[in-house]
Design a protein around this nucleic acid. Structure first.
Lengths: 412, 412
DNA sequence: ATTAGTTTTGTGGAAATCCACAAAACAATG
DNA sequence: CATTGTTTTGTGGATTTCCACAAAACTAAT
């Protein structure tokens, strides 16, 4: 095979050099990414590049909206299932001009992509063939990067577990490690847990990792896997609305996993949002608490992900313990329960739902499929039978908590 | 002194005999009571007696409404301050006909009363003198009764303390003791604690005891004193509305102590209402909890006496403990607090009051002396600053509890 | 099947709450 | 002292809630 037949036979010092070589041959700007769409290398001395490429180079990763759009158009799935180069037409919404892409393979796995922008000229069939060869030639270089990353990854994982289990106590020590491993630090962070239906396989881990790496809604600091839990330390992009950002992230994570990999039924949560790293263990535990509560109160907590949002459920374990010791007997609840049992009524459920719906008569009636007047009548009955004053928030809160607690106890 | 001059010089086997003797001499029905208006003896073979006397004999105590009325008219205070016989005109509301009364004294203390009904005839001045002598002669007999009672009282007190401190465990053993000491048992009961401003003196104890003995709103089973606490085991008259009865009793106890003995500022409470005697210790502890909560949350708990009514405050000690361990951090509260501190606003107080008033805008505005619109504005601000959803009852309850808890912690 | 008691649904008008907007008061700042 | 941002008060009208009463449906027991 002559150099003309395989122009990438030569050795290259760096991937940058390699990118320049392709660029020279094809006469168009070249970008090389890893499997997670992080920039590995790009050709220099290009006259024109489209906004998407510029943004990619600046932030050293492909912008999320571009990735999203490529998924939606089916580009990435196609690249992941074939070694053939693929032409992508302009997607002007995300600043993407015409281009050709090819995936870089190692065994049966995609480990990167090469992009060629068709700014000045359109690639011919031969050019496409050349690009395919380039992808094959790039394999080893990209793989080396991967290996190095993996080794580092192992050390980082060990460190993360130490943090999660509270084996590193002082903030200085933690910061030192962060610096040493070149993990970015953040002023605010929280631990996320994504619980999958079954144990997380290597493939699944890669897919999750892919979604995380390409998500730019949050800043990923560290992550690891524990059986069917995917554990993540992450920081918000801006410190103003961390809660909102985190919730957004969880929602989009779920939809992405579903749309792209057909994985549903992920239970997600995150712990408290803290400023100092000593609280990582705490945040992790809190995230686990949220998951356990979501299991026990699916309806109530369906839209709750953060420990903050867990509200009063935060101390249910504590209360349950005392309840078990026979502490909090509630005669109102006992009376209502007795009445419900005897007359097959739903007074307790009615009260619970009413309180759940912020004491809004109409909403509650709708939720229970009853007439608002029926609700009013039942409430009057509840006050009579349970001997409670429905204007006394204290009694109401107590009854509400006791109802939830009884449910919780039944499930536990 | 001849028998004619002092016709009571002779010995009498019983107080009944003594009552008959007075009755013979004065030609009218005679009733002898102890200091607590319990019937000690009464003359037989009387043709006519008024309804008040009949009721007294039947129930072996003067009906409460009669006592109340006698206090109101100033009769009892007069009898307690003078040895002279006193004529009382008909009080038809309570079925009391014309009569003459005299108190029985021992040293400087009244230990009983003699009542002479003027059914057939009106007593002359000489008759009144005779009655006074009778009162003097009755002293020793009545005193003997007292002594016997006191001895029994001591044993009973010891027993009660064992119950309060949980030193008698089994229900059978407790019942046995109750029977042995001839204390009436009841199907429902609770422990009351009345806390006075200073240590309870002998005099005060007698006054309290007097009010208790003459109260017929509840059934007094046992009582004792612990420094400035008066501890009482009592049962409701009927098992239907124990809560209501107990609350009524506490209110009337307070007014009576105030009106009759000018003692205000009694803190009252009662524990859980139970059916089996093993729970006496628990009920006592609960009553103490109520008092401690009343001390810490005077406004919120001013109309609360029963442990039941304490509602969510029941588990505040528990929560505080966890809070101390740094468990429940509430970033919403923290943010609101920071804002309040910086801008000298009252967001937290506003929210607290709003929740206290069952989310009623008008009431809250009135309580805070602000315009309802101001309240609406503040609530909007609270939602923004604290990042909480004011339609989410869970978050609201949590914030509310955290606010109260912070107050509680500050006080403790 | 009848009946008494309880529960649910329907109706209409009084009362209250909610909402958007404007105006005024206030505090902090340079 | 003028400016700026925040907070409070005022107003009018749309909307919702509340309440009392009547009617209908349902349940359990005779």
């Amino acid at each position: 095979m002559t150099l003309k037949e395989d122009p990438f036979k030569a050795n290259f010092d760096s991937l940058e050099e390699f990118a320049d070589r392709i660029s020279d041959l094809l006469q168009c700007p070249i970008t090389i990414e890893d499997a997670n769409h992080r920039l590995i290398a790009y050709s220099a001395h290009d006259d024109y590049t489209d906004p998407a490429r510029t943004a990619t180079i600046i932030s050293r990763r492909v912008p999320e909206k571009v990735i999203n759009s490529l998924w939606k158009k089916g580009v990435i799935p196609a690249l992941l299932s074939s070694e053939e180069p693929l032409r992508i037409d302009t997607i002007s919404e995300v600043g993407l001009g015409n281009r050709v892409a090819v995936s870089i393979w190692k065994n049966n796995e995609v480990i990167g992509f090469i992009w060629a922008l068709e700014t000045e000229r359109t690639l011919s069939k031969e050019d496409m063939e050349l690009l395919k060869k380039a992808a094959k030639a790039a394999k080893n270089k990209v793989l080396q990067l991967y290996m190095r990353k993996n080794k580092r990854e192992e050390r980082v994982q060990e460190f993360f577990w130490k943090l999660l289990t509270g084996h590193i106590k002082t903030n200085e020590e933690i910061k030192e490690n962060f610096d040493m491993m070149q993990i970015p630090t953040a002023s605010l962070f929280s631990v996320f847990v994504f619980r999958f239906a079954s144990d997380i396989t290597n493939d699944l881990e890669k897919q999750i990792s892919y979604v995380l790496q390409t998500t730019q809604q949050i800043q990923v600091l560290l992550y690891t896997v524990d059986r069917n839990d995917f554990i993540l330390l992450a920081a918000p992009k801006s410190p103003n609305q961390p809660l909102y950002e985190f919730n957004q992230f969880i929602a989009s994570f779920a939809t992405k996993m579903k749309e792209r990999f057909h994985i549903n039924s992920i239970q997600s949560s995150f712990g408290g949002i803290y400023e100092t790293f000593e609280h990582i263990e705490k945040s992790y535990k809190e995230a686990l608490t949220v998951l356990s509560m979501k299991e026990k109160f699916p309806e109530q907590t369906s839209s709750i992900y953060g420990y903050q949002q867990l509200g009063m459920y935060q101390f249910f374990d504590l209360l349950l313990e005392k309840k078990r010791q026979g502490e909090f007997t509630n005669s109102s609840l006992a009376k209502l329960q007795a009445y419900d049992d005897k007359h097959h009524t739903n007074l307790i459920e009615t009260f619970e739902s009413f309180f759940d719906h912020d004491s809004n008569v109409n909403e509650t009636a709708k939720a229970l499929n009853i007439h608002p007047n029926t609700l009013a009548y039942r409430l009057k009955r509840i006050a009579e039978i349970g001997e409670i004053d429905l204007h006394d928030i204290n009694q109401k809160v107590k009854l509400y908590i006791d109802i939830k607690l009884a449910k919780y106890e039944a499930l536990h």
